[in-house]
Amino acid sequence: MKLVRGNEAVIYGALLAGCQSYYGYPITPASEIAHTAAYYFPQLGRTFLQAESELAAINMVYGASAAGERTMTASSGPGISLKSEGLSYLAGAELPAVVVNVMRAGPGLGNIGPEQSDYNQMVKGGGHGNYRLIVLAPYSAQEMCDMTILAFELADRYRTPVAVLADGVIGQMMEAVRFPKPCDTSPAKPWAVRGDAATRPNCLTSIYLDFDSLEAHNRRLIMKFAEIEAREQRWQGYMLDDAEVAIVAYGVTSREAKSVCESLRADGIKAGLFRPKTLWPFPKEGLCEIAERVPKIFVAELSMGMLIDDVRLALNDGRRLGFAANYGGKLIRGDALRNAVVEFVKGQQ
């Protein structure tokens, strides 16, 4: 057990998972990921390279992945905007990679405070074309490590890029983390281009000039995404068994919501927390199951109504949802969240 920052835990996880290279460009509040990588990767005979841009970084990742190794990059919203080109190509060429986004506040340069406004950027695309990004949402330093490891596994299993979507608080916060043993589960990658006799016939590309071939490629990708959607929905419930109201929240907001649930219960309001651990695939099944028992659903997010869209889509029952949000790098204050939930439960919101 070790007390580390969330951002550091990402690199511990990556090293334990056998990540061989890190390519990145500095940006607050994600920079400690690069700092930690710069310190450890070379000492373990692995590659750390500060790229000339986010574009270059994601394309170095593309190359390293094509060469058959576990590789990653990390950034924050503005950098992820630049990396989105690469995400589309990675998905198109079916190359596994891990991309960490420690969200700051936007749009534009915004500020470096915590926000969750890259939800749509990560969950709904960002890059062009028909593709999906698996998006994992850690809420602790422990999960920054565990989900980075999981991200490498999922990326390899499905040959597709996987994002870890954290926020400034989860990245900056220090907590005790129980680290697993080294767990490099990299599978054989017969499709890789390794510059040897065995892989000489291989070709990795995302261009299919012939319309029928591109249609077939798209259909195959869509089937893969459907399989991921069926198999990889993850969530965690807290005090939901007897709940009259469930707060849906992820990342730092779910930490606040957890405390609010405890304080509401002390006052006789049976509140529980539904915490998506995957934002794509969204844990629809779990949420619908909970929503059958729990009459009131409340959504809290640090964005302008992005998570709530997915909650609505998942429930698809027209019910009125409670909602609290904040922006600008400011968290929802605990008492503000608490009051909003109370009002909603009393039918006043």
Binding site: Q20, S21, Y23, T47, L49, A51, L55, A56, A57, N59, M60, V61, Y62, G63, A64, S65, A66, A67, G68, E69, T71, E85, G86, Y89, A93, V193, R194, G195, D196, T199, R200, N202, C203, L204, T205, S206, I207
Partner: peptide, 27 residues
């Protein structure tokens, strides 16, 4: 007749950097 990788517009040197760092024995 080599290992082949097709890449995004302008990014070939970055991709090649990632490949050569991964497999320094490659050309």
């Amino acid at each position: 007749d080599c290992g082949n990788i097709q890449v995004a517009h302008g990014r070939a040197p970055a991709v090649a950097s990632g490949v050569t760092r991964a497999n320094p024995g490659n050309f």
